[in-house]
Write a protein that binds this DNA or RNA. Structure first.
Lengths: 227, 227
DNA sequence: AAGCCGCGTCAAGTTCGCGTCAAGACGGCG
DNA sequence: CGCCGTCTTGACGCGAACTTGACGCGGCTT
């Protein structure tokens, strides 16, 4: 999943952007000032950064400069200043794009798509290792004892949803809705059958599951923790 | 010297841009309609294209589409239309940037610098060898057993996208979106047909592909690894 | 203790997706 | 205007994947 960092001191903007980006299946993190923005970049390099120029602590331009001293990550400047000089300065300092407030959310999303298209930076490879099993959800690859195991599309969907919530409980109705769509929330037998084949392929002892465990009457849980 | 193609039907704009660009030591050529623009691109590939959407003959959007079917050259759309939908359409069809008239010359120049800065940094001369097949994606050349094999434009697009992600999975919807544009994400039959002809031309045994492999229900994968 | 409900298992039946082929539509070029 | 390469569209067969129903087991309730 593409990871976007949104930097703005206006909570309303942060909220709007987060909601819209998340709805498009982006992984979003926010920062309200330059210091925390740089920290996030340091910890977990984003695929795109949306950067406001008017920040409370450091000037947005300075943030951009510092950023460029160690990272090539695409930056889209989002600013209320429409003065051409500001744009030129930001662009020449390494910004990849500049969009002025107020802006159309659709346009912003399109510009985000442009930068990700160019860098080809999709999916930072979401992999999970459990003992001798390796699951690469973004690549749809499962490896067990060194050799590839084939999972079907529905099996992958289930695994993906459970894996994204590592450890937490996922209700049956939720799984059914996510995989089969609305209207299938009571077909719990589907889950039984498909979970069975997933376990047959990935569990050491399919009859005593330790990775994909059942919460009777409620749902399922993915437990990647293993010695 | 960086070569810029300016496409606009307004002679005044052509003049202003030419003068300003030439003053910055760009090599400039102009076109007043879509047909001659495409011709120039065919003869002498520009480093950047400034494209107006309102052209007398072909719609600017169509020019962009045709352009993208055979060239990756950076395109900055320059248009009087400020409707967000127009912007989104152009950007999703492959435009790298979008600027609305009237604009500041300085800003336009800055945006030109952004695109050239980007493309100048890349260019990893992209050839792949798999056994007796050689693929030169940047040059659109395929050679098998010493003789050239002809691939059609769509075939090249597919090969290129898969090859750029060597080994990694590309989802059907992604391929369809990238090759045919938004709205074609479910026409998986297109992929079946074109993949078939690609395999017929490049695989040893087209019925048992080893280079372009299918992940049933999910997508395709390019596997250049070979003994 | 008996019965019910939810889960896992299995096998049979059906659908779905892929590859293949061929016919028709489209568009560029002479 | 007609030719030719290319792309689209539909039909078909096959195999994998999914659905569906039956069954047994175990825990929980009454």
């Amino acid at each position: 999943m593409t990871f976007v960092l949104v930097v703005d001191d206006d909570p309303a903007i942060l909220r709007t952007l987060s909601i819209n980006l998340r709805a498009r299946e982006y992984d979003v993190e926010t920062a309200a000032d330059g210091r925390s923005a740089l920290q996030i970049v340091d910890e977990r390099m984003p695929d795109v950064i949306l950067l406001d120029l008017g920040l409370p602590d450091i000037d947005g331009i300075s943030v951009l400069k510092q950023l460029r001293s160690f990272a090539e990550v695409p930056v889209i400047v989002v600013s209320a200043r429409s003065d051409p000089d500001d744009k030129v300065e930001a662009l020449d300092l390494g910004a990849d794009d500049f969009i002025t407030k107020p802006f159309s959310i659709e346009e912003l999303l399109a510009r985000v798509r442009v930068t990700t298209r160019r860098t080809g930076a999709e999916e930072p490879a979401f992999v999970t290792v459990i003992g001798d099993v390796t699951l690469d959800v973004t690549e749809s690859r499962a490896i067990r004892d060194g050799e590839e195991v084939h999972l079907t599309p529905i099996e992958w969907k289930i695994v993906e949803i459970l894996a994204r919530r590592r450890g937490r409980l996922v209700r049956q109705s939720e799984l059914l809705h996510a995989v089969w769509g609305p209207g299938y929330e009571r077909q719990t037998n589907y889950l039984r059958v498909h979970l069975a084949s997933i376990r047959r392929k990935l569990e050491d002892d399919p009859s005593a599951p330790t990775i994909f465990v059942t919460e009777p009457g409620i749902g399922y849980r993915f437990l990647p923790d293993r010695a």
